[in-house]
């Protein structure tokens, strides 16, 4: 059981790294949202592995909440993306410097 838990956390950490790298390396807002999705999948794996060892129903409840919030975050992010595109003419984060002092 412990080996299964460690495997899940190992891959969760790997997924989290891939998402984090994507968010850090890309200048494209859409790709950054994709990185965020990958990161959240990593944390979901970590939660379900912990839940399998302790309290699975609680873990399922947490995961369902997380998925719902994830959808809201993605929808809000995509709305901001389209808005950014209309304001700046692109989805480049480096162009978002209108508040620069």
């Amino acid at each position: 059981m412990s080996a299964s838990f460690a495997t899940a956390w190992y891959f969760a950490a790997l997924l989290f790294f891939i998402g984090l790298y994507c968010m850090a390396a890309s200048r494209n807002l859409l790709r950054q949202l994709i990185g965020l999705e990958v990161m959240s999948k990593g944390s979901l794996l970590a939660i379900i592995a912990s839940g399998a060892m302790s309290n699975l129903s609680l873990a399922q409840a947490v995961i369902i909440t997380m998925i719902v919030i994830e959808v809201v975050v993605v929808a809000a992010g995509l709305v901001l993306l389209v808005k950014t595109y209309r304001v700046t003419g692109g989805v480049d984060v480096w162009k978002l410097s209108s508040l620069k002092g």
């Binding site: 379900i48 592995a49 839940g51 873990a59 399922q60 995961i63 998925i67 994830e70 959808v71």
Partner: peptide, 21 residues
């Protein structure tokens, strides 16, 4: 992992709705 409810949510919402978005 024997978590069917979470799996159904993941399948319908993440694989479906988020992809459409």
């Amino acid at each position: 992992f024997n978590a069917p409810w979470a799996a159904v949510f993941e399948l319908s919402v993440c694989a479906g709705l988020i992809t459409v978005l």
